[in-house]
Amino acid sequence: MKFIGVPVRVRESNNPFFTPKGQLPVMRDGRKVLTNFEEVVEHLKSLHYSTDVHLNTMRTAEASAFTQYLQDKLYPAYQFAWWVDEKNYSELTRPIYAKALRIPFNFYYPSKYQKAAKDMIDALYGEHTDLREIEKTIYSEAEKCLKTLSDRLGESEYFFGNRPSSFDATVFAYLAPLVKAPFPNATLSNYLKGIANLSRFVARINQKNFRHVTDEYNRQNAKKHSTGTQSEREAANFPNQTRNKILAAIFAALAMTGYAIANGMFQDLKDFEHSGDYNEMFENEEDDN
């Protein structure tokens, strides 16, 4: 959307419960709800927004083949780094989600996403395979994939000429978190950072399309280090430092959640989401648009 200037309003949310698949982000255009990248691309094309108009048939086929290659070789390693590696999960991924999501969903969704990632790895490599062997294999395949991407990009600004395509957006979505996230076990991200043209590719898109995000992050980070207020120190140490303060509230929330599940209240909410009453909640907003 940034590449082609689609007018879009971003609403930050920390509650994926009412989303169709229990995941964020979700895009809504009127009554049409889109939950994955492919759906968004196709919907934008139907509205005559496309990043790929400059691609001929051969390049379109090449982009499609490379996208599948990323899905097969890089995505499993990406999931492994975020969710299956125990050090990364316990020290980075879970605390981030626990801080961002609402109680009690911050206890449910990280475990759900981790289980999905582990199930995928088990399906690919065997449930009883040694995890260290899986890590070695999965990162080796990912490194080959990154090397192939680097060779394809060369010294070009984008993968298919001087204009970005949906494939560039896909690659950026894979690489940017690996470059930016402070993984305790940084095997894959360190390898990526050592590939100069891919690192420049991420930095270039950040500067051109997400400069305000980077500037805001740097401003907040500088403020945190200069002032070091009590609330910021507590947030930085979440969840360890504040655990005792919210323990009672957590158990109360979990107890109420268990009661709600047992009595079918969540299903009632899901049914409400698909009802006319739920849709009417957006009527005024759509009239404004």
Rank of each mutant, 00 (worst) to 15 (best):
F183I: 09
D277S: 11
R163K: 06
E273D: 05
N36Y: 12
Q241N: 06
A173R: 05
L34F: 09
L70V: 08
A255C: 07
A255S: 11
K147W: 08
E273S: 10
R204Q: 01
A235Y: 09
D130N: 13
S111I: 08
M281E: 14
T170L: 12
V33Q: 00
L149F: 15
F80D: 01
L247M: 04
E280F: 08
G161K: 13
D130K: 09
D130W: 07
I195Y: 04
K32T: 05
Y191H: 10
D288Q: 01
P239I: 14
S166E: 06
N14P: 04
H48N: 14
L92G: 03
E135V: 01
R102H: 08
I134T: 05
N240H: 13
I121F: 05
D288K: 07
S150L: 05
S156E: 14
Q71L: 06
S199L: 13
K180W: 10
S50D: 15
A81P: 12
S165H: 03
P177S: 10
H54Q: 01
T187Y: 09
K118Y: 06
T214L: 01
L188Y: 10
A181M: 11
D287R: 15
H43Y: 15
K32A: 01
T148H: 14
E234W: 11
N14H: 13
F159K: 01
